[in-house]
């Protein structure tokens, strides 16, 4: 078995943290793990991509285009930009909370409507799951737990090879002591929301 997750988003959204949680859980489950992260200049508000590959004999930190089993999109435009990382069988887990690029904020470029963005992926893929992680995170108590919501949601996806309990345990080991409770709640909300869709 080999499994590849591509996590995309914007610098500061917690993409690296989420990929660390998934990676550590994969290691705890006994898999070989190989990941690639973006550091440096791209983190200044630019697009961030984290690649996580696990399974027998995994050694390459990069996956070919089209090879992802799961694409976790922390931001709608970035999910659309990453479409070609997936294929017909790929599952898309797409957060719907936008982060406006600076040129959009300044009114020089337009940010597409959410329906257009989701629709454009649905045209090519039958496996698009959407979630409002920011809304759920606020419900959990703090907007910054949106990445915990996303991890919880990923855990509920059909065929996701890492057990939900293990993911949650790894998440809680990763976050600071004082925010364990919040992250626990955010994870559960993400999980329940996605499980409820089945």
């Amino acid at each position: 078995m080999k499994y590849t997750v591509q996590i995309v988003g914007v610098g500061g959204q917690g993409v690296l943290m989420a990929s660390m949680v998934l990676g550590n859980a994969a290691m705890a489950a006994g898999h070989d793990v190989s990941m690639s992260e973006v550091h440096g200049m791209a983190q200044r508000g630019g697009t961030v991509l984290s690649t996580l590959r696990f399974g027998d004999g995994t050694i390459s930190p990069l996956e070919p285009r089209g090879g992802a089993d799961l694409i976790i999109g922390f931001e709608p435009v970035e999910t659309c930009r990453a479409v070609d990382l997936g294929n017909e069988e790929t599952t898309f887990l797409m957060n719907l909370d936008p982060i406006y690029p600076s040129m959009v904020a300044a009114g020089f470029e337009e940010y597409p409507l959410t329906e257009e963005l989701v629709g454009s992926i649905r045209k090519v893929s039958g496996k698009v799951l959407t979630i409002e992680a920011g809304v759920l995170a606020i419900e959990a108590g703090r907007a910054v737990t949106a990445n915990a919501v996303m991890i919880g949601a990923a855990a509920a996806i059909d065929g996701f090879p890492l057990p939900a309990e293990l993911l949650k345990k790894t998440l809680l080991e990763t976050v600071p002591e004082k925010s364990k409770e919040l992250n626990n709640k955010a994870f559960d909300l993400g999980y329940a929301t996605m499980a409820g869709r089945k």
Binding site: Q43, G45, G66, C80, S102
Partner: peptide, 21 residues
């Protein structure tokens, strides 16, 4: 061989270059 990548999305996406904070 790897599966054929999906073709890109048909919506015009705004760019997101790194920027001053």
């Amino acid at each position: 061989e790897t599966p054929a990548p999906l073709t890109g999305c048909d919506v015009k996406l705004p760019g997101r270059p790194p920027t001053l904070c």
